[in-house]
Computed example of a mutant assay.
Amino acid sequence: MKKESANIRVGISVGDLNGIGCEVILKTFEDSRMLELCTPIIFASNKTITQQKNDLGMDITFNGVDQAAHAIDGKINVVNVWKETPNIQYGVSTPEAGKYAIRSLKAAVKALKDEEIDLLVTAPINKKNIQSDEFNFPGHTDYLARELGGESLMFMVTDTLKVGLLTDHVAVKDVVSNINRKLIREKIEIIEKSLKMDFAIRRPRIAMLGINPHSGDDGVIGKEDDEVLRPVIREMADKGRLIFGPYAADSFFGSDTYKQFDAILAAYHDQGLIPFKTLSFGMGVNFTAGLSRVRTSPDHGTAYEIAGKGKADAGSFKEAVFKGIEIYRNRMEYEEISRNPLKRQKVKAT
């Protein structure tokens, strides 16, 4: 991972044009101080961004470029991915909006792979209208795992709370059949490595939530916790990992037990995201751990109900930018330490 530009180059996919994606992006960089922190590069078109800012009554100037490599520091840059003018219908899910969301995403990911941008922040998409013969993924995470390599993990993070998912976009009825010892080992290892590499935590403590109510109550409400989770936790703990659990999910957050750990691994989507969003909605960040590149996203969706009305709160998107930059810097430092630990120790000693 190399860094040549003075500023960190943050690539941004616009998400669903009928949602609040463009609004939270423009509100984030309306503050000129953000341009001292990074160089934003939005993958859309001059016409689309102009229409969005005019509809929202925002006075923002930007620099249009034909590719990310030509972006200028100190300015909001827009890569012209398309020349035509999409039909924007705020608050409505349309196939056209899904098509342009994917065009933006694909262009941004290509720039990320080509090292024209340093990290990627994705605005929200609609998981239904993005589906096509060319794009058949339940969301960003699975697509990015294929394109960027690595074993991905949906990791919801703030400075004080980090929740990873053992299974993410899986129907509740299929959760148990998707959980096995191999998967548990892999996800724990991804979380542990990410905490060290991306968040600079040397000896991370990780809690595992139970699959069944009350972690199965000694097999009375299901045997998966005793037969699948506990053996892996015991095995990894015996190897020196600080892995604990399984904990009954219903009382884990309400009792503040979560504050004793650096991260929590939830068994399924709502088990982890309901408490996470309750405790930190609007300030949380969706980070895809385990990939070769850094990708973050806000913790909310397209919010069709307020799209085009100027009511969207850009807090979570701004946090996604901040967190992406922080992770990128931590990862660069981790790689430097890994390459030459003696050199780094000498520098710190002085």
Rank of each mutant, 00 (worst) to 15 (best):
K3Y: 09
N7I: 02
I8N: 05
R9N: 06
S13A: 07
N18L: 02
I20R: 03
G21T: 05
V24I: 15
V24T: 07
D31A: 14
T39R: 05
I42M: 03
T48A: 09
T50P: 00
K53C: 05
N54F: 01
N54L: 11
G64C: 15
V65S: 02
A68C: 09
H70F: 15
N77K: 12
N80P: 13
N80F: 02
V81I: 08
E84T: 04
I88T: 15
Q89P: 00
V92M: 13
E96S: 15
A97D: 09
K99R: 13
A101E: 09
L105P: 02
A111M: 10
K113T: 14
P124S: 14
I125A: 05
N126G: 10
K127T: 02
D133E: 14
G139M: 07
A145H: 10
A145R: 11
L148V: 08
L148E: 12
L148H: 11
G149V: 05
T160P: 08
L165F: 12
A171K: 12
V176T: 10
I179W: 04
L183Q: 07
K187I: 03
I188S: 02
I190L: 08
I191R: 03
M197V: 12
R205E: 07
D218V: 11
V228M: 03
V232M: 09
A237P: 01
K239M: 10
G240E: 09
A248F: 00
G254R: 01
Y258R: 00
K259Q: 14
L265P: 04
Q271M: 13
G282F: 06
G284T: 10
T296C: 09
H300Q: 08
G308N: 10
K309E: 12
V321I: 11
V321Y: 01
Y328A: 03
Y328T: 11
